[in-house]
């Protein structure tokens, strides 16, 4: 058989040159991400696709730990909406978190993250639900009155049109006033993943300069 292991890739594999051309990543960085992807996607089910349990295991070292925000991020990474994350989805989604990714992409991703019910708006009930979820996660105890006060104050700052929902334009305005809202949308690790993770054995098949 002439088949080589070298050509066996995970389902949804895309050429690093293609992904590098579409994202801020270099070809070498995409290849490094592929090494990470293979580890994540084979940690529980060896099918080369990241299942939600594998995502949770990677984030929390616990496959059964549910978390509202991890669920939302998984769902946004799962672009094809088929319950798993393939390599192309992994790279394209992570690219939004690259320090060199356009700020507008980060703004839109964060907006979609908070738009829990995917209505195209962030609603007050969604904001309160997220605050309560965070309190539950952190085991912080705040009275109902304090939660209402926090949500109210944030809502007054954000819902500048006063129509009871936050649209993308209002979200953009809020973020411009408080840039730290996007702090988690940038992962410094991604700036040069090949140096940050020297354990990855890299043997680039294509020089970055070739693309």
């Amino acid at each position: 058989c002439f088949c080589s292991k070298k050509n066996k890739h995970t389902p949804g594999y895309e050429e690093p040159t293609v992904l590098a051309a579409e994202t801020p990543f270099t070809v070498s960085e995409v290849e490094a991400l592929y090494e990470l992807f293979k580890k994540l996607s084979n940690s529980i089910i060896s099918d080369g696709l990241i299942h939600k349990e594998e995502f949770q295991l990677a984030l929390f070292r616990n496959r059964n730990r549910r978390n509202l925000f991890a669920d939302r991020i998984f769902d946004l990474f799962d672009i094809k909406r088929n319950g798993v994350i393939d390599f192309g989805e992994f790279v394209r989604s992570l690219s939004v978190f690259h320090p060199n990714a356009p700020i507008e992409d980060k703004i839109k991703f964060a907006f979609r993250l908070y738009d829990l019910r995917q209505t195209g708006f962030i609603e007050r009930e969604e904001l309160k639900e997220m605050v309560l979820a965070l309190l539950h996660e952190s085991e912080l105890v705040l009275s109902e009155d304090v939660v209402e006060m926090i949500v109210d104050k944030t809502w007054k700052d954000a819902d500048t049109k006063g129509d009871g929902k936050i649209d993308l334009e209002e979200w953009r305005d809020l973020v411009s006033k408080s840039p730290s809202l996007l702090k988690n949308m940038t992962l410094p690790y991604l700036k040069d993943i090949t140096l940050s993770f020297p354990s990855f054995v890299l043997r680039s098949e294509v020089e970055d300069t070739e693309i």
Binding site: L36, K39, L40, A58, L59, F60, R61, N67, L68, F69, A70, D71, R72, I73, L94, F97, A110, L113, Y114, L127, M130, V131, A133, L134, E137, S138, I150, V151, K153, T154, D157, A158, L174, S178, S180, L181, L182, K183, N184, L187, Y189, I193, S196, F197
Partner: peptide, 25 residues
């Protein structure tokens, strides 16, 4: 100082911290 609820969420939720994808390897 009052903190924004979104800031509260983004800075405190472990589910929103993707650096763990790399650190836990």
């Amino acid at each position: 100082k009052f903190f924004n609820a979104f800031e509260f969420i983004s800075s405190m939720s472990s589910g929103f911290d993707l650096s763990n994808l790399f650190e836990n390897k």
